[in-house]
């Protein structure tokens, strides 16, 4: 696919990723400038999905590095296959010459490629998703931005391995801690927020073609109201909105009603505290009135 703004816009629509023009332009710039795209935003606004969509658009592999506390270079970049090396030593103990054995032991076949190295060594351009980078330690982050600035890594026993193709890199962060300036400087930055009501209606209709106009509108309005409640800690994600809409559809609802809300609200709100906050501050009856009144 040729990377232009209209082509990206159309491709996003074709795969059902409905988004704002700002997002299209930012993705376009990241691709053209060959810079990593750092996406921040609340959980469930479609950050990871964007990486998947890019892989689908370019018809290429998505290599995912899921970050967590304690993630280190061995898990992210490469590791020597220690067990296999030991087996080789045991087998060749009597026969092989020591020097040959040592050379053999550090050959590529004993190297376990982890996501970063796999992305750099791939024959064709891949999409590398470094998910929830804010969960890693600061030391790992520093290591990461070295890799991302040069797209090459040094394996002492093998030398420098440079990227065959510069991958499309997407980093996501839930903003649980502030990332370092060094990492941010190397990236094109995108902040994704929850979609507005109109945008969410579009998303619902694109993903659930069978849904009626009234139900999709009322669901989007109801979700926007729930998200605006300060006491609801875990705001409903776009995926949860879609699940909720599908559930209502499965129950053959064509409008949002008090009974329908009470039957299905736990698909949207998943902690007791949030459900309590919903019943206390909004409630099913008021939600029904609200979405109807808005419509009128």
């Amino acid at each position: 696919m040729e990377v232009t703004i209209p082509a990206l816009r159309k491709a996003f629509r074709d795969v059902g990723y409905i988004t704002d023009e700002e997002v299209v332009i930012t993705v376009y710039l990241a691709l053209k400038l060959e810079k990593p795209l750092l996406i921040e935003g609340a959980p469930g606004v479609g950050k990871t999905e964007l990486a998947k969509v890019l892989a689908a658009l370019f018809d290429t592999e998505l290599i995912r590095l899921q970050c967590y506390e304690g993630l280190d270079e061995n898990k992210a970049l490469y590791e020597w296959n220690y067990q296999r090396q030991l087996l080789k030593i045991q087998i060749s103990r009597e026969t092989a010459c020591t020097e040959d054995l040592e050379r053999d032991l550090f050959a590529r076949e004993y190297l376990l490629e982890r996501p970063l190295l796999r992305a750099i060594q791939a024959d064709r351009k891949v999409v590398l998703l470094i998910d929830e980078v804010d969960k890693t330690d600061e030391e790992f982050e520093a290591f990461l931005f070295e890799v991302l600035s040069d797209f090459q890594v040094s394996v002492p026993e093998l030398g420098t391995l440079a990227a065959r193709q510069i991958p499309v890199v997407v980093l996501t962060s839930n903003n649980e801690r502030e990332l370092s300036d060094g990492l941010k400087r190397r990236c094109v930055y995108l902040y994704l927020d929850y979609p507005g009501v109109d945008r969410e209606i579009e998303i619902i209709r694109a993903r659930i073609p069978d849904i009626g106009e009234k139900l999709s509108t009322e669901v989007a309005r109801a979700v926007a109201l729930i998200r605006s409640d300060q006491d609801v800690r875990k705001k409903p994600s776009i995926a949860e909105t879609l699940d909720w809409a599908r559930a209502l559809l499965a129950l053959e609802k064509d409008r949002l009603t008090k009974a329908g809300v009470n039957q299905t609200i736990n698909l949207l709100l998943k902690t007791k505290a949030d459900l309590d906050a919903f019943h206390k501050n909004i409630g099913a009856s008021r939600l029904e009135e609200y979405v109807r009144a808005e419509k009128g």
Partner: peptide, 14 residues
């Protein structure tokens, strides 16, 4: 709109 988005994406990261 494009100019705004480009400057925002490259300059504003918080």
């Amino acid at each position: 709109r494009s100019v705004r988005a480009a400057l925002q994406a490259t300059l504003v990261k918080r």
